[in-house]
Amino acid sequence: MKLGLVIDLDTCVGCHACATACKEWNASSKVNGALSDYEPFGAEPSGVWFNRVRHYEVGDYPENKTINFPVCCMHCADADCVTVCPTGASYKRDDGIVLVDQDKCMGCNLCAWACPYGARELDQVPGTMKKCTLCVDRIYDEMLAPEDRQPACVLACPTHARMFGDFDDPQSEVSRVTAERGGFGLLPELGYAPVSRYLPPRQPQPVIDADDARALLERGLASLASPVIRR
């Protein structure tokens, strides 16, 4: 199994619902322990998050576009964050999920240095490393209705920009949509073989300027008028 996420950059509206749903679920999860906040009501609030949404502009005006860009752990097939860990706290499961054993971590930060995507954050309170668990405590929970056995971020997304599934199964929704839409992994050149895929925004329609618009209109009117005149 190769569990991971698909993130649709075409439909993501950058609302941060996935990030807050993640924080809410994982703050009370037993897998990582609480996600600490530092000065949550102070002047400079900060804290541990597994999923962060950033916003970019690509292209130059008028062919420009805003891209909202959520990033969390890609559950890489070739995860150096696991290799570098000296304590064995970081490990990869058979289903592909990369986890940190909180009881073993010594807080050396080396795995965070080894992750190209910034998917790992040290929690200053226990002094241990924390990261996305792909909601391992939801997706196998038989007490939940089958449609709820998905990561909290996927369930929260109002535009269905996030999908969860097994990339080893060619019939899964994530495999099919990745093939159809040309889903890509981030920074493949570094060789981590990230599992999660991003779907590119659909191509924008070319922009029409005023002169083009008038020409189009005249042509349209002429073609409408011509049968009338001919008759």
Partner: peptide
Amino acid sequence: GPISAAHA
């Protein structure tokens, strides 16, 4: 495939 445009 990947997003097209020169600058981000």
